[in-house]
């Protein structure tokens, strides 16, 4: 299969089941909502080193938020259902509670699995906190120096998918970056997905384990490193001098497939030789995103 002259390899991205929460942050204006969101989603690229993965899902209009103020929706994901509440509490507590004018709400109100967040953060109020039940949901009012921090007591948790991906194999670093930027741009803001890496792009794709250090969980994906073409079992076609990866997480498989389709389509441009994907032989992750199937469903040829 080719898309505008770019070869689509007959392979698949292998992804994993994760637990996901949607956090809605509002503030007096978009600037402060974004400030809190950027801090909350900082250092959350991979569970390997960050314990969770997070990203801004999309900007919310005033009419879409519970309190009618500007806001952002964030997806935060962790591997286990015991991990997610911890990550929510520590990140909301350190980045949203601390940020001027913000309030924090659950973005998955229909999820039957609920985890306590405001119920833990309220203790920062040192006994001066109070709660309100509004439309059947409890909210905690935590007094702070600025005024008052409002946070919902419980957040919904659902099973999501982490680790959707595709690799852009390009003739040059410039072409790879240009294609990756276009791909990430096309995927950003789509409902139900996040791109947890910087700008949505990864330059250091990894393989499981290490050739030399047994304790390492992951190490560089040498098969796709252009500088190692001559000294390792390379997977790079002739003429490829740079590879970038886009990783996408989401609330479900269809959301990821849709985002991958949009991203791959945008990334297929001059200077790109091929699109491939990372997998572990299909033995580790239950979700397989076959590139050619995804692109053919989207009308790619």
């Amino acid at each position: 299969m080719n898309v505008r002259g770019v070869y689509i390899e007959d392979t698949f991205a292998e992804a994993f089941t994760m637990r996901v929460a949607r956090i809605v942050i509002t503030a007096r204006n978009p600037k402060w909502a974004r400030e809190a969101a950027l801090k909350l989603t900082g250092f959350a690229t991979s569970v390997i080193g960050c314990k969770c993965e997070a990203g801004i899902e999309r900007v919310l209009r005033s009419g879409e938020t519970p309190d009618g103020r500007p806001g952002l929706a964030i997806l935060l994901m962790a591997m286990g259902k015991d991990d997610l509440p911890k990550r929510l509490i520590e990140r909301i507590g350190q980045t949203v509670l601390t940020c001027p004018t913000t309030a924090c709400y659950d973005g998955l109100p229909d999820a039957p699995d609920r985890v306590g967040v405001g119920s833990a953060l309220r203790f920062f109020g040192d006994g001066f906190q109070s709660s309100k039940v509004i439309d059947g949901h409890r909210f905690w009012r935590v007094p702070v120096m600025e005024g008052e921090f409002l946070v919902q007591e419980k957040f919904g948790m659902v099973k999501g998918v982490g680790g959707g991906n595709f690799l852009i194999l390009a003739r040059s670093a410039d072409a790879a970056l240009e294609a990756a930027e276009a791909g990430a741009e096309a995927m950003s803001g789509l409902a139900g997905v996040i791109l947890p890496f910087p700008g949505g792009v990864v330059r250091s794709g990894s393989k499981v384990g290490s050739r030399r250090i047994k304790s390492m969980i992951a190490s560089t994906n040498d098969a796709y490193c252009p500088t190692l073409r001559a000294v390792t079992e390379t997977a790079l076609p002739e003429g490829v001098n740079s590879v970038l990866e886009i990783v996408v997480n989401g609330v479900d498989a269809p959301a990821i497939a849709g985002a991958m389709r949009a991203g791959i389509d945008a990334a297929c441009r001059d200077g790109v030789v091929a699109i491939t994907a990372g997998n572990y032989g299909g033995k580790l992750g239950p979700h397989h995103f076959h590139l050619r199937k995804i692109m053919s469903e989207g009308g790619g040829a």
Binding site: P66, G68, K132, I134, F149
Partner: peptide, 19 residues
């Protein structure tokens, strides 16, 4: 105590309006 903008009031008042 002070003069401020309680965020929760927006939820209460918005509900009274819409519901």
């Amino acid at each position: 105590a002070c003069t401020y903008q309680p965020a929760y009031l927006r939820l209460v008042l918005t509900r009274l309006h819409t519901r």
